[in-house]
Amino acid sequence: MFEQMNEQFKTAMKPMTDLATLNMNTVQELAEKSNALYSSLLSESMSYFEKASQQKDLMALAETQKAYAESVQETMSEAAKSSYAVLTEAQQKAGEMMKGMSEDMTTKFTAAAKG
Score class of each variant (00 low, 15 high):
residue 70 E to C: 03
residue 77 S to V: 02
residue 60 A to Q: 07
residue 105 M to L: 12
residue 75 T to N: 03
residue 38 Y to A: 08
residue 75 T to M: 01
residue 10 K to Y: 11
residue 8 Q to V: 07
residue 56 K to H: 11
residue 2 F to E: 13
residue 68 Y to V: 01
residue 106 T to D: 13
residue 85 A to N: 06
residue 43 S to H: 02
residue 44 E to Q: 12
residue 11 T to K: 09
residue 56 K to V: 05
residue 15 P to D: 02
residue 113 A to D: 07
residue 59 M to T: 15
residue 99 K to C: 01
residue 68 Y to C: 01
residue 43 S to G: 08
residue 51 K to L: 02
residue 25 N to K: 10
residue 5 M to K: 13
residue 52 A to V: 02
residue 96 E to T: 08
residue 7 E to L: 09
residue 9 F to Y: 10
residue 85 A to Y: 02
residue 65 Q to H: 12
residue 96 E to Y: 10
residue 59 M to A: 15
residue 11 T to A: 15
residue 82 S to C: 02
residue 80 A to G: 01
residue 85 A to D: 07
residue 31 A to E: 11
residue 53 S to R: 10
residue 63 E to Q: 14
residue 74 E to T: 09
residue 103 E to C: 03
residue 20 A to W: 00
residue 79 A to Q: 06
residue 114 K to G: 11
residue 92 Q to C: 05
residue 109 F to K: 01
residue 114 K to W: 07
residue 9 F to K: 11
residue 38 Y to T: 14
residue 23 N to Q: 13
residue 12 A to N: 08
residue 41 L to R: 10
residue 103 E to R: 04
residue 38 Y to S: 06
residue 46 M to F: 03
residue 48 Y to K: 02
residue 26 T to N: 03
residue 74 E to I: 05
residue 11 T to E: 13
residue 60 A to H: 07
residue 25 N to E: 12
residue 37 L to M: 07
residue 103 E to G: 06
residue 54 Q to M: 09
residue 33 K to F: 08
residue 44 E to W: 05
residue 47 S to I: 00
residue 32 E to H: 01
residue 110 T to F: 02
residue 25 N to C: 00
residue 101 M to N: 13
residue 23 N to K: 12
residue 88 T to L: 14
residue 42 L to W: 01
residue 104 D to Q: 14
residue 23 N to D: 14
residue 58 L to D: 12
residue 61 L to F: 06
residue 62 A to Y: 10
residue 114 K to M: 15
residue 87 L to W: 00
residue 86 V to T: 10
residue 42 L to G: 11
residue 100 G to F: 12
residue 113 A to P: 02
